[in-house]
């Protein structure tokens, strides 16, 4: 786990060191005098060799020190931590509602295959799954906030501020989860053990809940885990559409202001966070699946 985290930080760090010219030149712009560029490079340690900077960075990051922002001059770790709750709430809420909407509709769609409800939900899901997050957000904003005036359009003052961003993120992911649930449910409903359950006289409810669903949900857990990736990417766009002061806005503003230390800090933070979530999903997989549990458990 730790080597992978170091590799991830290495990639982010490496990419952000590919700047044409020194980072100081990028931050200050092409017309700044060479002396101030040199001074900035020295102050931020950009004049040291790459590998020295990298090892230093890892050492400091472990202690929770990501350096200071060039623009605000405040510690980057503080900035990240003050923005993180917004992004965390948004992500967790979206995931929760995506599962709450996606899984039941997926089950219903599979059980009532070829019905009108199945046709409608699969078509809507297909459409939602290809919807670009930012455009979907703009449409919801247009309808519910600018036209109908039901919900606020920007900021994070109250719970109402979270409704539209959460919907924007949750619905496309719910579509993906719904499609996955539907296809795995259809798969398990055709299995021999389901036929056996029916043959021995189990009620349809028992067949669906106990025999099919339990087995069908395993791939759905993977889908949910993978969705965290698009969710993290989505938050960057959604925060920008709804002007929410989260990590996404922080990152995008830092890129616009050429605040390279800040970009490095927030991208590293998000990338490592994503990796840890994926790791958690892998662990959950073992906990949920009795076949894997017996193989890896008891250790």
């Amino acid at each position: 786990m730790i080597p992978t985290v170091i590799c991830i930080v290495f990639i982010v760090f490496g990419i952000l060191s590919l700047t044409p010219g020194s980072p100081g030149r990028v931050i200050l712009g092409p017309s700044a005098p060479q002396a101030s560029v040199d001074k900035l490079n020295h102050d931020f340690g950009y004049d040291r060799p790459f590998i020295v900077r990298f090892v230093d960075y890892i050492g400091d990051a472990v202690k929770g020190d990501f350096g200071i922002s060039y623009i605000s001059k405040r510690p980057i770790a503080n900035e990240i931590m003050s923005r993180f709750p917004t992004t965390l709430i948004l992500t967790v809420l979206s995931m929760f509602f995506a599962c709450l909407i996606g899984i039941p509709i997926g089950i219903l769609s599979a059980v009532k295959r070829y019905s009108l409800a199945d046709f409608l939900s699969t078509s809507i899901a297909l459409f939602l799954a290809t919807m670009p997050t930012f455009w979907f957000g703009l449409l919801l904003l247009l309808l519910f906030s600018l036209q109908l005036g039901w919900l606020p359009s920007s900021g994070i003052g109250s719970w109402e501020h979270y409704v539209l961003p959460t919907l924007t993120l949750a619905l496309p992911i719910a579509a993906g989860i719904m499609r996955m649930t539907r296809s795995t449910m259809l798969d398990t409903l055709g299995q021999d053990y389901v036929r056996t359950a029916r043959a021995k006289g189990a009620s349809e409810r028992i067949v669906i809940w106990r025999h099919s669903l339990k087995n069908a949900l395993l791939p759905v857990v993977t889908q949910v885990g993978l969705a965290f990736g698009s969710l993290l990417g989505g938050t960057l766009l959604v925060e920008s559409v709804f002007s929410m002061p989260g990590l996404g806005m922080l990152t995008i503003n830092a890129i616009r202001q050429k605040d390279i230390p800040m970009v490095t800090g927030s991208v590293t933070f998000l990338a490592v966070l994503f990796y840890l979530v994926m790791l958690l999903v892998d662990i959950m997989y073992v906990v949920i699946d009795p076949r894997l549990r017996s193989r890896y458990g008891k250790g």
């Binding site: 991830i8 990736g229 990417g233 960057l236």
Partner: peptide, 20 residues
């Protein structure tokens, strides 16, 4: 696999932040 472990948009943003 390492490249895949980074969300695509983060990778893209990092590249653009560095290259312009």
């Amino acid at each position: 696999d390492l490249l895949l472990s980074l969300p695509a948009i983060l990778l893209a943003l990092a590249i653009i932040a560095a290259l312009g």
